[in-house]
């Protein structure tokens, strides 16, 4: 899937690949949101080849900092419907092809 996308971009020429973190949906307070976003960025950069370890790192860190229980999904293509505690969800894109969903539900 990602390849086709990349091909398209190359074909059109003008298209630019954006890699900056983009928050798609979040109801977190400003401070936590920024911190969580930065954490996701570091995790995904560190484990760019392994989404599972990245997700694990995010989950562990969030559990430590903000209490259990956090759930993380890192992937390039998936669908989800989750129930989360209010003010505790972050849905963001990073690196142009990875989506991260991070929510709390204990």
């Amino acid at each position: 899937m990602a390849e086709t996308e990349g091909d398209q971009k190359k074909d059109e020429g003008k298209k630019i690949v954006h890699t900056y973190p983009l928050i798609r949906h979040s109801d977190m307070p400003e401070e936590i949101r920024v911190e969580a976003m930065e954490l996701c960025v570091t995790a995904c950069e560190k484990f760019s080849s392994n989404n599972e370890t990245a997700a694990k790192m995010i989950k562990d860190t969030m559990d430590k900092k903000f209490g259990p229980s956090w759930h993380v999904v890192v992937g390039e293509g998936f669908g989800y419907e989750v129930t989360h505690e209010v003010k505790n969800i972050l849905y963001m894109f990073f690196g142009g092809n990875v989506a991260i969903v991070l929510w709390k539900c204990s």
């Binding site: 899937m1 990602a2 086709t4 996308e5 798609r24 949906h25 109801d27 992937g75 390039e76 293509g77 998936f78 669908g79 989800y80 419907e81 989750v82 129930t83 989360h84 505690e85 209010v86 969800i89 849905y91 092809n97 989506a99 969903v101 929510w103 539900c105």
Partner: peptide
Amino acid sequence: RISYAANVTQ
């Protein structure tokens, strides 16, 4: 709690 759903595709 609230539910949230989305699809992630490239």
